[in-house]
Amino acid sequence: MIGRFNWAGVIDFLPQLMTGLYYTLLISIVGLVIGFILGGIFGLGRIAQSKVISSISVVYIEIIRGTPVLVQAIWIYYALPLIIGTELGSVTAGIIVIALNSGAYIAEIVRGAVQSIDKGQMEAGRSLGLNHGQTMRYIIWPQAFKRMIPPLGNQFIISIKDTSLLSVILVPELIFQGRLIAANHFNAVEIYTTVAVFYLAITLTLSFVLQRMERRLET
């Protein structure tokens, strides 16, 4: 059976797959960096004393968590331009989708980690005369960040895999390229297997890096 397939032929399509890999990585990295910033803002926003700020954060988180990524992608690429009156490139739209989507989940990770820090830590900081912001920055955040790493890694991996859905809004990422190739050359097994291996390579590398990071922060 296996012999029927032309695995060596995959090499011819590597440049095209590399282009796809480039977009997958670009959107993942830029999207997750923005998502992490959004997550920090809205995660802390959710536990802010101001009712307005915490309400805005809750609304954002619930809307994103309550709708499928695919719907978010289609809405941002096809519907949002009609509202704001400007076209969005598919890559830009893709980055927005990953950023907004991961941001909501990361916000919950941030909130959970910050709230898991013993309240005696905040009291100790405040009793020394540090203000709320200083206590957050020097005492709570560094401890919370350590606890965020495992769930963050999880979210990063989920978001990277979610980028494959962006093929429906014509982002030229990995699976988009794969489908183009397979449709023209009838080599679905070889190409889709290769695409799967590419995704696996990205996520395994990330897992490895995060594990090392966690170990280094352990002391």
């Binding site: 009793s127 020394l128 005369g129 020097y138 005492i139 401890q143």
Partner: peptide
């Protein structure tokens, strides 16, 4: 609060900082 020191039942030291850094943090920042 800078004039009123407090010692807690559960110590509440900062676990991510060395002993000396626990002491130095507030004098430096405040």
């Amino acid at each position: 609060r800078t004039e009123v020191g407090m010692v807690f039942q559960q110590f509440n030291l900062f676990p991510h900082k060395k002993v000396i850094e626990n002491l130095m943090l507030a004098p430096q920042k405040v």
